[in-house]
Amino acid sequence: MKLGAKFWRRVAMALCAYAFLAPLFYMLSVSLQAEGHGLGGSWLAAARDPHWENYVRALERMGDWRRLIANTLLVSVLCVGGQLFTCSLAGYAFARVEFRGRELLFAGVLATLMVPEQATAIPRFLLFRSLGLVDSFAPLVLPSVLGGSPFFVFLFRQYFLALGPELGEAARVDGCGHLRAWWSIFLPLARPMLVTVGLFTFLAAWNDLWTPLIYLMSPEKSTLTLALASFNRSYNTAVELMLAASAMVLAPCLLAYFSLQRLFLRGIAIAAAKR
């Protein structure tokens, strides 16, 4: 039998695809069904008689949805900008600036990977409260801007190390300080890395429920995920409306991914190839 590896690979890929696509399909089919079926409605019924008005009603239910989108977008974009700035700069320093204690400091940065976010949530909350920043976007954005993710710092460092020492030396002999070398030479060369880290950060910020739930109270500062969560009432959860809203929240993420897919995959491949 020469059915062989190729066939089984196809089967495995089909199973994977099913595992990833089925929930999406389920979400879409429920979001289009008539009121009152809960989670039990059939997708055939939804396909025969799609209730597109669910999407409009979901928007109405969310209240000031333009404001929600604007808030979420603002937070996500600031997070992306902050993360790219901090992580690439720190990665550059760890890769290309010689200073005493560099390796030790880098080990320390990596060690923070092991600390789960939940463990630092309370001290962090106390810190932001003492700064008077609760119920503002600052607690959502500042950690990205000031700290960045240690894993992304690591990615940038590896990428800059892999470029070899000569480019940095050439830049310095040509008259650059470290900041100029980072900005003019290393950042433009790190485009695949910027896309990858930017996309990860955007998705994480866009989908984050935990941090807004802790810090945001005023309705006018609410984000999309908070609005989604509020669909979940103890009585009368309108499942079809909730999933219609979910689909709309998810759409920009899928769009961002597919439009940047090629660069993103290159970044992943590079990250995987370097030690």
Partner: peptide, 27 residues
């Protein structure tokens, strides 16, 4: 001082003209 490297160390994202111009731009 100016340094010429064994592996050239040109800036791969810049054209030849931009490579030549870079040390002057920095100054």
């Amino acid at each position: 001082v100016a340094l010429v490297f064994q592996n050239y160390a040109l800036y791969p994202h810049k054209s030849v003209a931009k490579n030549l111009a870079f040390p002057l731009e920095v100054r």
